[in-house]
Amino acid sequence: MANGTQILKGLLEGCILKIVKENETYGYEICERLVNYGFKDITEGSVYPILIRLEKKKLIYSIMKNSPFGPKRKYYYLTNEGAEEFQIFVVSWKVIKTNVDRVLGE
């Protein structure tokens, strides 16, 4: 496994649900937050397809709003289904993390 791209794809959905859960946000801001959390190689090109997928699954929804800095922005919000999916992600992540930590001896 040369890089963690495949692992990262699945984890980003849960991380994005958490960011959207905290308050309304737009795509570029989500990218910035992920970079600030340490995901240095994250680009808009990797985040926007995830946002589209989450919206198709009805885990988030969006509303176009005026921006104080230019054109309208698409703001994202968590649905009830998204909140449930986020809780499932948290439980799954804790189990996976615990098991990997055991394997690695940490």
Rank of each mutant, 00 (worst) to 15 (best):
G105M: 00
D41N: 12
K57H: 06
F39H: 10
E13I: 03
G27A: 15
I60D: 07
N80S: 12
I30N: 01
I88L: 12
Y37E: 08
K9Q: 00
I42N: 06
F86G: 03
I52M: 12
N36S: 07
G27E: 03
E44R: 07
S62C: 01
K40H: 11
K21Y: 15
Q6C: 01
T43Y: 09
L59S: 07
N23S: 15
G10N: 00
E44H: 12
T43I: 11
E24P: 09
E84P: 05
V90T: 08
D101K: 14
S46W: 06
D41G: 07
K74D: 04
E55Q: 07
E81T: 02
I63D: 03
Q87F: 01
I88T: 01
D101C: 13
T5F: 03
E106N: 12
I96A: 07
N36L: 11
K58W: 08
K97C: 09
I7L: 05
E24R: 02
K9I: 11
E29T: 07
L34C: 05
G10C: 13
K9F: 15
N99S: 15
S92R: 11
L34I: 02
Y76A: 06
S62V: 03
I19L: 15
K72A: 10
P49F: 09
K18E: 10
E44I: 15
G82S: 10
S67P: 09
Y76M: 00
S46I: 07
I30K: 06
L54Y: 02
